[in-house]
Design a binder for these strands. Sequence first.
DNA 1: ATGATTATCTTGATAATCGAGATAAAACCA
DNA 2: TGGTTTTATCTCGATTATCAAGATAATCAT
Lengths: 161, 161
Amino acid sequence: MSRDKLQKQETLDCLLKSLHKYGMRTVLFQQNMAQKMGVVHTDLKTAEILNETGPITAGELSRITGLSSGSVTALIDRLEKTGYVMREKDEEDRRKVVITPIQKRQKQIKAHFESLAEATKEACLTYTEEELVVILGFVEKVIRIMDHENEKLMAEREENN
Amino acid sequence: MSRDKLQKQETLDCLLKSLHKYGMRTVLFQQNMAQKMGVVHTDLKTAEILNETGPITAGELSRITGLSSGSVTALIDRLEKTGYVMREKDEEDRRKVVITPIQKRQKQIKAHFESLAEATKEACLTYTEEELVVILGFVEKVIRIMDHENEKLMAEREENN
DNA sequence: ATGATTATCTTGATAATCGAGATAAAACCA
DNA sequence: TGGTTTTATCTCGATTATCAAGATAATCAT
């Protein structure tokens, strides 16, 4: 391999390791944040999912979180009691229960992430717009990869049932 | 604000949102992976922590994971029984218990992340070395930010005890 | 030395999760 | 249409991760 290629290879290895480290910190952060908010890890995770997906059914939530249907029922009970979500019967298919996130609470959650967001924004200021575009493109790429990997894992899980 | 600045601002907002989305997927991935490996979320998280820190005491583990000392005892019991770690008395301070990860198991864990690592590596090939360096620098920067935020959250937690 | 502190473990209680069965709505189909 | 099957959620009893408080044992400080 040429010297340049070797160099690139090394950068790449380093990047993979760093992404892994970043992932671990993200998991810890989420755990810490849930604790600070006085909810279980699962509940914050669910609120975050709903924040991105918008209203979804209990079944979809079960698939995404990997929880049993019984656990999802309990989970929704908790979130409903604490005002994070609303249960609604799906008018199209009345077996289904649609879980709708409640805006007010979503904003409260977002507020908890403000410090992290600010610090990150601050760090971005040192970059040129071109660099930011490269970084953004990369993040979007790894998001798609993650989606694919998660999809695979969810499918595997369903096979074993 | 100038037109260029506006553009940059927009990219930045987009990046922040994407990072948040990436974070959620990371949490889900870790959860899915733990399930696939047949361990609880906490156990995989702990193994990952140990993989990065190397041997640490039960107390440090308690601080990092946010678990009570009792839970950490149970956690280590589980990990020891399944061969992920070893308990050793610290020779310097014999109250302490040092938790040492077991290499063989760590490799098995790493193997589970192989698919993700490969896909990510693949995605990186489209970038020049210069771009990779920029991305790597960014990831390292957000790692430091995460460390700082986590440190803050852990400190807060300790105050309330 | 002795009292205070620190690190981990033990124990009983709580609550999140599971798994299997119940219920009810929708889809299928003869 | 009526009856069977499938699907979506819920219920309930059992399991287990977690907590909180107290026990134990080693270290530190005076």
